[in-house]
């Protein structure tokens, strides 16, 4: 790990001020992704601003019947909160499908949103990677691509986005609340928070400027319906998704669906949602019409249809 200076912030505004004062500063929350990357010197912040003491660790009802989840709420607490298990069971299920008990005890709402790809080439500093070292190329293109994206990719990067929680947040149409450098707040639909790699370098990742602080994730009023998260992976627990499906299915067959493991961000569209009453194949035909799979990850398209098919059967049965 490269040396770095460290300080604890005492409030959200204090955190933003402290980070702004030190070039190369980064916030640290649970640390479960950032420290991993710092040990490998993939992330090399010169300064860490610890945000664990700034509050933002509560879950509150909003005026319009939704829920405001503080950025520092731990994944375990979010998945266990009564308002979440009752109103947004999809979120609860997605969170506990990810990582391990120990990691979820540390991982925070904002840290989870901001976790970086698990592309093996991103982690291997001996190989080119545009995400890690812009302009060096992408070792995954023409490499081992079984776990990579089948859609939303560019010539610069084909990695998949790893978070389970975020797939649920996309299906639930959540909003991200951000404190800007001037300490005013802006909000962004979570669907716009995650960026596709695109054709420019460095590749797109998050719509967050350096030094901006995520303060909360806001959920709209509960929408009811059957809420299911189905994750397919290489082992039964403690592995990232090959394909995951977050679905909210209403009694009349309408609803929302988002896929994980298939793209550089959770993958969904209004047109695909509109196809839900016509079944799984209608949805994935719409959603993956522009897919560009490799021979190695072609299976994800079949798996996506079948996983959604299984979810729709479960939604009828449960």
């Amino acid at each position: 790990m490269k040396p770095f200076s460290y300080e604890r912030a005492t409030s959200p505004a204090d955190a933003v001020t402290r980070a702004a004062a030190k070039p190369g500063a980064r916030f640290i929350a649970g640390g479960t992704n950032l420290l991993d990357l710092m040990k490998l010197e993939i992330s090399t912040p010169a300064h860490l601003v610890d945000v664990n003491g700034i509050g933002l660790d509560t879950i509150e009802k909003t005026a319009d019947g939704g829920l405001r989840v503080g950025a520092l709420v731990r994944n375990t607490d979010l998945a266990s909160h009564a308002a979440v298990t009752k109103g947004y069971p999809l979120l609860s299920k997605a969170i506990v499908a990810g990582a391990s008990g120990q990691l979820r005890n540390k991982a925070t709402t904002a840290g989870n949103l901001m976790q970086r790809t698990r592309c093996p080439y991103f982690y291997d500093k001996n190989l080119p990677c545009n995400k890690r070292d812009p302009g060096t190329g992408c070792a995954a293109a023409g490499g081992y691509s079984r776990g990579h994206s089948v859609i939303g990719v560019s010539g610069n990067c084909v990695c998949a986005y790893p978070s389970d929680m975020t797939v649920a947040l996309h299906a639930l149409d959540a909003t991200v609340e951000i404190m800007q450098l001037d300490r005013t707040t802006r909000t962004l639909p979570v669907r716009d928070f995650h960026l596709l790699p695109g054709d420019d370098l460095p590749v797109g990742e998050f719509a967050l400027k350096p030094g901006e602080l995520i303060t909360a994730v806001v959920l709209p009023k509960p929408v009811g319906g059957k809420q299911l998260y189905h994750k397919v992976r290489d082992r039964a627990s403690y592995a990232f998704a090959l394909v995951s499906v977050a679905a909210i299915i209403q009694p009349d067959g309408t609803g929302h669906v988002a896929f994980g493991g298939v793209a550089p961000k959770p993958w969904r569209s209004d047109a695909a949602d509109a196809a839900l009453p016509r079944g799984a194949k209608a949805v994935t035909d719409t959603l993956f019409a522009d897919a560009t799979p490799t021979d190695q990850n072609q299976f994800k398209l079949t798996l996506a249809t079948r996983t959604l098919g299984a979810v729709l059967i479960d939604a009828k049965a449960s």
Binding site: P3, A21, K22, P23, A46, L181, P202, E205, F206, K209
Partner: peptide, 29 residues
Amino acid sequence: MDIFREPKVSRRAVIVGGASSAAVTALVP
């Protein structure tokens, strides 16, 4: 511009930046 697009900065620059921390509006002087 997103958060991981910032230029790499040196330790020396951090010390300089720290000393002139009044300039909080510009993240990277």
